[in-house]
Structure formats: structure tokens, C-alpha cells
């Protein structure tokens, strides 16, 4: 850019009605990289209305309600699709197929489970969570009630330092939660002796001290085609299977 053209684009003295707009247009170009945007973990597009900013890094997120486990998997799915690794601890009942359907990349899932007869001690859980949070971007944890307050505090300070996201399924125990995700689910497709579970409508409400204002939305998780999407107003429910006489 020559000096002549610079002089030309400089605002003239006196009031300029376009100055504000032009500054606004220039702002993204001189942006040195938004720190806030880097401090979040991407979420699934269907969750964009309830978590428009994504999940804040370093946060403890608790999911509760009927769809607590699959909700936690859906929250982890956004980062997993973007190449992040997911650690799972204290969820021996994790359904791998459901995790894949929620959008988790299975090749980047590592689970830690305690032996049937020998449950991990509070101390071991502290070490396991510490190691998980060091290496994984999202950690799904289902045994929060088995961790004592002191250990939970240590884990959470490490979490804040490392910038991972801890997803607690069910009771939070001694952990203090930054984001609370509550779910209520209604199943569709199952009749009185016919049909099968086809779709689920999940009402999600998000609140917590690291959320600017509480939000609610309804999702098809999954819809009849197996996809996860928002329930659009006025859209019909999943059409029930027609009863067919056979034989």
C-alpha cells in the first residue's frame, strides 16, 4: 500500500458517519486471535442453541436426568469429531455402539475401569483423573460420588490449569459444577406389543455459573433416521409405525 492511498483512506477530520462501520469491518482483521474462542471446546451443531459458545475449557459439566449418559457422550462428540481424544472412567456400563451413534470417534476413546472385586480407592481415582485430564480433552466420569472433597478439589484445579473438560454423569459428589445439563426424554416408536424404539425427544436445559444465561431446547436424539437435530417448532412427531396385518 503506498502512502498516497493510506492518506486517501484515512478519515477526514470532522464527523464521519461511516467511521463506526468501517472500524467494525476492520476489527476482525487486526484481531490477534480471540482468547475466549480458544478457551472453549466445540460441541455438536444440534447443541448450538443451548451452548452457543461451546463448552468452556477447564469446566466441570454435569449431566443428569434420563438421558444423562448419552447426553454426556453427545457433549463429548463435538470435540471428538474435531480430532480430540475422549477418556472414559468409572462408566463400566458404557454402550460402545451408542457412543458411536452419538458421534464419538471410537478410535480415539480410551476407557479406564476398575476391577469387579477391587474398586479403586479415592487416591487411585485422583491419580487416574489427573492422568486422564493431562492427556485427553474431554473426560467422561461416572464415579464422582466415590471421590472425596480434597481429591475433587485437586482434580478440579488441575482441570482448570490443563483446560480439559470434565463431564460428570449423574451425581456430582464432592465436585463443584460449572455447567449443569439436565435432560428429560420421551421415547417414540414403541407401541403396545409392536414397533420398536425409534426416536427420542430430549428436553435439554443448560444452566450454571459459567453459562451467561440458562437456556432450554428440545432435540431429536436420535430422530427416526438416527441423526441428532433440533426439534423444529411445528414439525410433526415421528410417525408411528402403521399396524400391518400379516399372515
Amino acid at each position: 500500500m503506498t502512502s498516497a492511498s493510506v492518506a486517501h483512506t484515512l478519515p477526514r477530520r470532522g464527523p464521519d458517519p461511516d467511521a463506526r462501520d468501517r472500524l467494525a469491518a476492520l476489527a476482525p482483521r487486526i484481531d490477534t486471535g480471540s482468547l475466549a474462542a480458544e478457551r472453549v471446546v466445540a460441541v455438536h451443531p444440534a447443541l448450538a442453541t443451548v451452548l452457543p459458545q461451546g463448552l468452556p475449557r477447564g469446566a466441570t459439566v454435569r449431566t443428569s436426568g434420563r438421558a444423562a449418559l448419552s447426553g454426556a457422550l453427545l457433549l463429548a462428540a463435538g470435540a471428538s469429531q474435531a480430532g480430540a481424544w475422549t477418556g472414559v472412567a468409572g462408566v463400566p456400563e458404557l454402550g460402545v455402539q451408542a457412543a458411536a451413534e452419538a458421534g464419538l470417534a471410537l478410535e480415539r476413546v480410551v476407557a479406564v475401569r476398575d476391577r469387579a472385586g477391587a474398586a479403586f480407592s479415592d487416591d487411585t481415582w485422583g491419580q487416574v483423573l489427573g492422568a486422564l485430564l493431562d492427556g485427553f480433552d474431554t473426560v467422561v466420569f461416572g464415579a464422582a460420588t466415590r471421590v472425596r472433597a480434597g481429591t475433587a478439589r485437586r482434580v478440579q484445579s488441575r482441570l482448570a490449569h490443563r483446560g480439559a473438560v470434565l463431564l460428570i454423569v449423574g451425581a456430582a459428589g464432592a465436585f463443584s459444577c460449572d455447567v449443569e445439563v439436565d435432560t428429560r426424554s420421551t421415547w417414540e416408536g414403541l407401541g403396545d406389543g409392536h414397533g420398536h424404539l425409534r426416536a427420542r425427544r430430549v428436553d435439554v436445559s443448560v444452566a450454571g455459573r459459567r453459562i451467561r444465561r440458562p437456556r432450554q431446547d428440545s432435540l431429536w436424539f436420535p430422530d427416526a433416521e438416527g441423526a441428532v437435530r433440533r426439534v423444529e417448532d411445528g414439525s410433526a412427531n415421528v410417525t408411528p409405525l402403521t399396524w400391518r396385518q400379516t399372515g
Partner: peptide
């Protein structure tokens, strides 16, 4: 880098809680 970290963490976990307790699908 994420793969590297995750693999290091996995090795550390194996060291902590033993081989059969750290699993992948």
C-alpha cells in the same frame, strides 16, 4: 500433538492401574 499426549497419558494410566484396566473398543 493430541495423539501424542493421549498416548502418553494412556501409557501412564497403564502404569498406574495395570494392564487389563485400561481398555479401548
Amino acid at each position: 500433538q493430541a495423539d501424542e499426549w493421549a498416548q502418553r497419558a494412556t501409557a501412564r494410566l497403564v502404569g498406574l492401574v495395570g494392564d487389563p484396566q485400561v481398555v479401548v473398543p
